[in-house]
Amino acid sequence: MILDQMRGRPLAVKISLIALGLIIAMILLAPLLTPYDPITVDLAHVFQTPGTGHLMGTDSVGRDIFCRLLYGGRVSLLVGVLSMIISTVFGSFYGALSGYLGGSLDALLMRVADAMLALPNMLLMLVIQAIAGPGVFNLIVVIGLTSWMQTARMVRAEVLSLKERDFIKASMLLGTPWRRIITRHLLPHSLPTIAVVTTVGVGHSIMSEASLSFLGLGIPPFKPSWGNMLMGGQNSIMMGAWWISLFPGLAIVMTVLSIIYLGDYLQLVLNPRRIVDPATEQRSVMYGIGSIETAGTGK
């Protein structure tokens, strides 16, 4: 059944689906796939190269990289996806509200967003995290609340042009309250923009988690996450232990790319025009790949 669904989709989408599915399955089945413990230190087997009983080698204190990668993925994906959901939902409504209502409220809301953009993101996260304390939940909220500004600005720009269109004017004439105009018309029409910003944002938030963890404010270093594995392996690269950083890096790249491709494809599928017309479908798919590339270089 799933195979039937996959038929006819672009190659990039198939690969992304398989990769993401594989990553999620491996993360969930972690205890079955590896005999090691992600935290226990084994000083007898430090800096093992990949293949020597350890599939991806071991790090500076002898922990199995493959094992830590699986357990670390749980934290990284959770933080990446959940914080992006917070930031997207908040940013979209914030931007739509600001763009649609306009006037002095728009000016006020946008200056607040600008002020938050002007502060270095890391500083902002450090301060909030220092107040809120460490922990996965706080991490998600902090990253979510410091990354919505870009979404808000993009959605606002989209809404500014949409609200001059006839169908929005028609809704106003038919007495639709502004709340419903935003939720029923403006946000659905902004979906392509939102999808692109969000999927790129997942990558950023996984990296933010890594930086915060590295600075000791996110996940404690002994607990695995892709971010702190990547950071933790930096010093060892000089000693020739490339595998400590490489594998978490690859995992991040694979996940982020898959999500970007899927997100880009999702906004095509969500467009009702596509359902009927095979000719436009072909064209939209080509457009899809084009915009994936722009999204990729933007990152």
């Binding site: 269109r165 006839d166 169908f167 004017k169 028609a170 809704s171 004439l173 038919l174 029923r184 018309h185 659905p188 029409h189 467009n271 009702p272 025009r273």
Partner: peptide
């Protein structure tokens, strides 16, 4: 009520 010049532009294309 107003009837617009181009009905396609005057109605939401996603619903």
């Amino acid at each position: 009520q107003l009837v617009f010049q181009d009905p396609y532009l005057a109605m939401d294309s996603r619903i």
